[in-house]
Design a protein around this nucleic acid. Structure first.
Length: 274
DNA sequence: AGAAAGTCCTGATTGC
DNA sequence: TGCAATCAGGACTTTC
């Protein structure tokens, strides 16, 4: 599932492949992916536009066109790739941007959970899905004070809080578990019971985890590949996620998996005692 | 208003 | 073996 490091890796690899390419037409095979505007209006709007840049906010990709911004979320299994137009479509290809140079930008998504929103340039910040999005921990604008206030004012457990993109952007199920292991905080600990120091350590752990994962090109657990079809390498570094039953690399106790509001949650009962 | 549950999907895994 | 039920999960919408 692409989280911030995977989306960043996709952004970097995809940028080289699409910048300067002009859209001739779009094929939409699963219209629900296109949340806004209506698919036929979406098509009319982007035809003739050229890709100028790709930015990222949290787990969202922002494709800058001449006059519009395409906001794309990959959810669990979304993938982008650039192919010669003549090449046969891979399974689960739902949206195809046909370029004037006889190549395509193709969006594939086995579960069809991904979304695309199109905005006039500059308007994307004022509407869903970006309007409520918090800063990401590796951003220079991240406020530890605001983060601390939000965490300490919540009755929810820290696992849930860290998955909330209006509190901190970019973490998903894998990196929340890894961050809490590094911070030595139990996933069920309530936000209201965490000290300023706990929260600072959580923030620092998130930064360290995300930066390491970006350097490794992301984590491939199920099916993640970057825009050039390469897998990530960070799964070798995982300490708790998908390590149920294995020995903790710090203390040797057994990594335990529990469910926290429907999410698989991995932790070391000794290092992360509540 | 805040928090939990429901929703969207399909391939892989589990259970009988 | 074969089929059906269950699981995986991000973020929005709905419900409490």
């Amino acid at each position: 599932m692409p989280e911030l490091p995977e989306v960043e890796t996709i952004r970097q690899t995809l940028k080289e492949l699409v910048i300067g390419k002009k859209i001739e037409s779009v094929s939409i095979h699963w219209p629900k992916i296109i949340q806004q505007p209506e698919p036929d209006m979406f098509h009319q709007t982007v035809v003739g536009q050229t890709f100028r840049d790709i930015r990222r906010k949290g787990k969202f990709l922002l494709f800058d066109l001449d006059d519009f911004v395409l906001v794309s979320h990959l959810r669990m299994e979304g993938k982008y790739g650039v192919f010669p137009s003549a090449e046969e479509l891979m399974p689960h290809t739902h949206v195809i941007f046909h370029f004037t140079d006889d190549t395509d930008l193709r969006y594939r998504d086995v579960r069809k959970f991904g979304t695309m929103h199109l905005f006039k340039k500059g308007e994307e910040q004022n509407a869903k899905p970006l309007v409520q999005l918090a800063e990401e921990p590796i951003s220079g604008n991240f406020s530890i004070k605001t983060f601390t206030e939000k965490v300490q004012s919540s009755q929810r457990c820290i696992k849930n809080i860290l998955l909330d993109q209006t509190v901190i952007a970019g973490l998903g199920n894998i990196y929340v578990d890894e961050t809490l292991f590094l911070a030595k905080i139990h996933p069920l600990q309530q936000g209201v019971h965490l000290t300023d120091k706990d929260i600072l350590i959580i923030y620092q752990s998130a930064v360290e985890t995300l930066n390491k994962a970006i350097k490794q090109g992301g984590t491939t657990i199920r099916s993640y590949v970057n825009s050039q079809g390469q897998i990530g390498m960070f799964q070798q570094e995982l300490a708790v996620y998908s390590k149920e039953g294995e020995a903790c690399q710090v203390c040797g106790d057994m990594i335990t998996k529990i469910k926290v509001h429907g999410r698989g949650t991995h932790y070391c009962p000794s290092c992360q005692a509540i």
